[in-house]
Design a protein around this nucleic acid. Structure first.
Lengths: 214, 214
DNA sequence: TCAAAACCAGACTAAATGGTCAGGTAATCT
DNA sequence: AGATTACCTGACCATTTAGTCTGGTTTTGA
């Protein structure tokens, strides 16, 4: 008889919280922290503004909750790669993963882009250090690939920047992309763009594309 | 005796106007249209807020004046390329030009990025049509290169998106780049990044890099 | 030199905004 | 059933914001 009739996940509060988060992500992705309006978030969540402030004590804390959630998205399979792995496999998979985020979490990508363009005022030292450490580790792996002849000579930093830039572009600049293409990117288009990008980057690095990614 | 003692260019008004534009570009590049504050622009230009609104009748008209100026930056040597030109020359030069904009007009690039992320609400139909027309023409040239065997089979749209993404990334995400590299990009770093990028894209397209760009 | 035009800026206003408060109702737990 | 907690919301407030108004001063051009 100790049956739990309403789990924490589907309680009214949890549902409202997630609706607010979803609406806030859209609003922040469109206008950034300063430009976002709490009233608009409330409208998007179909709740009175007061309720938004009931669940999150301020616009700032709502923003931070979202940002934290988004940063966890950045963690992926590339994190564990070592010099013993095959660079073409690892990089192709990393690009594919990043493209997948652009496809199904475009607002998250945009919010992150805005935070960076705004000068990253909400990314604290803890995250910055962690991020820099991660970068150091990944650059070391790429450099090790180069040193062992698995990868042609290149700049590891620029390589990663190029991967981020191209993959995130499909989310951040989707408005321009759709306008110029004359239509939105379908799932099939994303698959094609992903294959195209993997081929460009890997070939550009002197690697061949694993068959799984063609 | 018809000597003009004060040309229009160095009149008080012209000077103030350009100081306001410079300050506004920084503010809009940091916070977007909605997030930007007229008072901050005034502070940046070292003028009372009233004067900003004296020279530009509203925040919106100031924003539009800047946007128009920035859009003219996008015009470059690639615009006149034809099927008879050498794709490796043309693309290398285009990438170099785009990287140069990122280096010396980073705020312009950021402002444009924000405008697009915001859904391009200030880009009117005239510009959109013009932009789409330009794209059509450039895609046709790239396709012609492919058809004549000058360029390997690829998707012309994605190729251009990738060039924009990578080059603009150095301006738009400069905060992240500087943080992760541990230092700002010097002119020499930009030269290296440009060569690196040209090599990546051209090699990725099956082209060889012209010696002028190595 | 003098009038017109350009420029300057403090005081102000109306609207919008983030956030509070107080007084509820609904759900939950024992 | 009763009490405790979670949830809801209209009214309200202090602050910020873009933009105006009014009365100046400086610059310019004839």
């Amino acid at each position: 008889m100790a049956l739990i009739t309403s789990s924490k996940e589907d309680s009214i509060g949890a549902q409202n919280r997630s609706r607010i988060l979803a609406a806030a992500e859209k609003e922040f992705a469109l206008h950034g922290f300063k430009g976002a309006r709490v009233q608009k978030i409330a409208d998007g969540a179909d709740l009175p503004k007061t309720n938004v402030l009931y669940y999150f004590k301020s616009k700032q804390s709502l923003y931070l909750a979202l940002l934290e959630d988004i940063l966890s998205l950045w963690n992926g399979r590339f994190d564990e790669a070592t010099v013993d792995d095959d660079p073409s496999q690892v990089l192709a998979q990393y690009i594919a993963d990043k493209m997948e985020i652009s496809r199904n979490r475009p607002e998250a990508s945009k919010m992150f882009a805005l935070e960076i363009i705004n000068g990253a005022p909400n990314l604290n030292h803890f995250f910055r250090d962690q991020h820099a450490q991660w970068m150091k580790g990944r650059v070391a792996v790429i450099q090790a690939w180069i040193n062992t002849g698995k990868l042609a000579q290149t700049n590891a930093y620029y390589l990663l920047f190029n991967i981020w830039a191209t993959s995130q572009h499909y989310a951040d600049f989707s408005v321009q992309i759709n306008e110029l293409r004359g239509q939105a990117m379908s799932q099939a288009d994303f698959t094609e763009a992903t294959q195209n990008l993997i081929k460009l980057i890997l070939t550009g690095c002197g690697l061949s594309v694993p068959v799984a990614f063609t």
